[in-house]
Nucleic acid binder design. Structure first.
Lengths: 197, 197
DNA sequence: TAAAAGTCTTAAACTAGTTCATTTTTTTTC
DNA sequence: GAAAAAAAATGAACTAGTTTAAGACTTTTA
């Protein structure tokens, strides 16, 4: 059975946790929508109700909120083989607080809420897939929420660079500052200090 | 069908997401272990591999790490009807970084890793239960990890008090400071300031 | 390929939060 | 219920990170 390259990427991601028959693969693919986002344009904006959960097959995006002063706080960078979206708005159908903007022109596969619900009826083993996917994400967010309160900005930077070297090279220092939780000026100081060491 | 009071609590929690037959309820209960922890004693300590995931039927506990200076950072307070543990260590079977200590003498139901795995074989709809449970936790940890970098300590305190008033009254200011991510001294200042307003 | 827009660096003055030391208040323990 | 231990409050000196401003460098766009 032959699928498009992007479909192989998502099937491969799913196969980490569950095994699908060819028929199930076809069914699953039929529930997905192909989406392209140009560099610097929005996949979604705060105030909208999220229509999809996304799997990235190509590119790089940032997910962020704006605080009351209008400063951005980036909650994740999403690159190839990552899942992203606003799970809260997707589930509750309430307006999102998040913006998702393409750092590079990107290609994604989206699953709509209706198809997400349908998926569990049609192929119940996707409950298991999402149980595992959410479990893994939960573990990393628990760790991250602890890092936020227990490490200094410099330590958070060093950690990030060690854990995601491929991402560091694709984003600006300014965006990294908005992820770490500091100003771009202080980020600049940290980087020159760390490089001097 | 009649169950013990503590068993009704957990069955009621599970029924938020899935419906169980009486037989399935009995089976599920049979996979759980009853645990009691005295006030000020440990349910688990860093360095151990986590044996159970826990559901609290009575009491209050804190989950925390110690940083390299030996200062505590609390990642959650767990009270009645909450699930807790160290999911990472539970899944990977690697030693945990977390301590779990009873703030009040507490009663819990634990599920061992072996029984957790068995549960999905015996009652596959638990995949759905955990998919939903992890999804809800994930949503709140994503929010918390964003709060950590986008709000001031005072704002985080006000948020916490608004969201968990019942918990605030059961814990010390010192523990709340370790959760918010500040020193007890600064917590004291914030509280007196907020009360003056 | 020039101009415009955005990013990065540096520095000085500032503020949120820390550290350390002391006293008061509350809780625990025998 | 007295003594001991822990928690909370207060204040002064400090440090990590912010703000504002200006110039240099890099990328984007027409």
């Amino acid at each position: 059975m032959n699928f498009k390259e992007t479909h192989n990427l998502i099937l491969n991601n799913v196969s980490r946790f569950i095994h699908l028959t060819d028929l199930e693969k076809q069914k699953y693919i039929s529930l997905l929508t192909e989406i392209e986002v140009e560099k610097k344009t929005f996949l979604m904006q705060a105030g909208e109700v999220t229509k999809y959960e996304y799997f990235i097959t190509k590119g790089c995006l940032k997910v962020y909120t704006l605080d009351k002063e209008g400063s951005p706080h980036i909650s994740m960078f999403a690159v190839e083989d990552y899942w992203t979206g606003d799970l809260s708005s997707f589930m509750t159908k309430e307006p999102s607080m998040y913006f998702i903007k393409a750092i590079e022109t990107s290609e994604l596969l989206g699953i709509s809420r209706a198809n997400y619900d349908l998926l569990f009826q049609e192929i119940p083993k996707f409950e298991r897939f999402y149980r595992n996917l959410y479990q893994k994400s939960l573990i990393s967010y628990i760790r991250r929420s602890n890092y936020g309160i227990s490490l200094t900005a410099e330590e958070r930077y060093v950690e990030f660079k060690k854990k995601y070297p491929q991402i560091v090279s694709r984003i600006t220092q300014k965006d990294l500052a908005a992820y770490i939780g500091i100003t771009p000026e202080f980020m600049s100081k940290i980087i020159s200090k760390v490089n001097r060491m």
